[in-house]
């Protein structure tokens, strides 16, 4: 398999939560491609649908949430007739979410580093129990071999005295170690797509740097794709090859990291970048903020969701329809009427 065809393609994905108070359109038409060996960054304010998009990819959206439209295509290579490798496209939205095929993909081909490392291990099962369980689920090994693999995983992510750690409980580990253990578990079955949902929000800056280096190294060693979710544009600049900017369930803009940071097209991306402090700023200067606040998910504005807060919104246009995601430049795409 080469790196020029996407390993994961999401097309016009919509995930809605029908609640008594109304429907939350958590994800409302998201399209992107992820390639092997790439770090795919996703940024956006809290509640814009980053985690729900990833849960949809794994088909673990909690009820009453439902995928109401769109496709999620995973490319796998299978052995062909004459020993050659053949590509096999599989549409995850068409699978039974709790069926055997989906379960063999979940955790094995696509793995998740969950958003809250502190609470992501069960407190009454040992770390080892939980990692070994994942290994034995997807690999034909016995308990002893699985333990060996788990031990090696803990070593790989840099956990000291791994033998002892395997028999400890998550609350006996420091935040940094717990984060590493979570990463070890996600990597234990050699996934080709690794989803890291804000893997560094709960740890201090030093640990954050270590975790980021670790993810980078693992990704290069294994040629995996990493989908990296964060609020932190600094982390994105450091980690990502390609960036997608989301707002209220929609993609505003996506492109290579250099384009996004040096030639942002969408007014929302521009506003986001203005709101991070730079080294050249005079001290105590007020940071520009985005005016207005994020609308409530039940009454999303008509048209482009960002138009009420947008300085460049075009009356009679932006408040009428959602602009389609259009290609602009080689690898960059933007959803804005300014670029019609």
């Amino acid at each position: 398999m080469n790196n020029s065809t996407p390993i994961l393609s999401v097309r016009d994905l919509k995930v809605h939560f029908p609640l008594d108070e109304g429907t939350v359109k958590a994800v409302d038409g998201v399209t992107f491609d992820v390639y092997a060996g790439q770090v795919f960054g996703i940024v956006g304010e809290s509640g814009c649908g980053k985690s729900v998009t990833m849960k949809a990819v794994l088909r673990i959206v909690e009820p009453p949430g439902k995928i109401v439209a769109g496709e999620i295509i995973l490319r796998r290579s299978v052995a062909g007739a004459n020993g050659s490798q053949m590509d096999d496209l599989i549409n995850l939205t068409a699978l039974d979410a709790s069926g055997r095929v989906m379960r063999s993909i979940r955790g094995a081909e696509i793995a998740l580093i969950p958003q809250e490392p502190m609470a992501s291990f069960s407190p009454v099962h040992t770390i080892g129990d939980q990692i070994i369980e994942a290994i034995m689920l997807h690999q034909a090994v016995n308990q002893r071999e699985a333990r060996k693999i788990a031990l090696q995983m803990l070593k790989d992510v840099g956990i000291p005295i791994p033998d002892q750690r395997l028999d400890e409980y998550s609350w006996q580990l420091s935040g940094g170690l717990r984060q590493r253990a979570i990463i070890a578990m996600a990597l234990s079955c050699n996934p080709r797509v690794l989803i890291a949902d804000e893997p560094t929000t709960a740890v201090d800056v030093t640990t954050q740097a270590q975790v980021l280096r670790l993810l980078r190294r693992l990704q290069q060693d294994r040629n995996a794709a990493i989908i990296f979710i964060t609020h932190d544009l600094g982390v994105i600049a450091q980690m990502a090859d390609y960036v997608m900017v989301m707002y209220l369930g929609l993609v505003m803009e996506q492109g290579p990291v250099d384009e996004i940071f040096h030639a942002p097209k969408h007014p929302y991306t521009q506003a986001l970048l203005r709101s991070i402090p730079t080294i050249t700023m005079t001290p105590r200067e007020n940071l520009p903020t985005i005016t207005g606040s994020i609308p409530h998910p039940f009454n999303k504005p008509r048209g482009c969701p960002f138009h009420p807060r947008c300085e460049k919104s075009i009356a009679g246009k932006c408040d009428q329809a959602v602009p389609p995601l259009r290609r602009i430049g080689a690898n960059q795409m933007v959803s804005c009427f300014l670029y019609e």
């Binding site: 379960r103 979940r106 793995a111 998740l112 969950p114 958003q115 809250e116 369980e133 578990m185």
Partner: peptide, 29 residues
């Protein structure tokens, strides 16, 4: 609704195994 249930599900465990091994255990304690 605790995160460790999402983790268990994301491993690829079947739903009833997820429920019986993790949240039920903690709910009974």
């Amino acid at each position: 609704h605790k995160p460790y249930v999402v983790t268990a599900r994301a491993k690829g465990l079947s739903e009833w195994k997820v429920v019986l091994k993790y949240p039920v255990r903690l709910a009974i304690n």
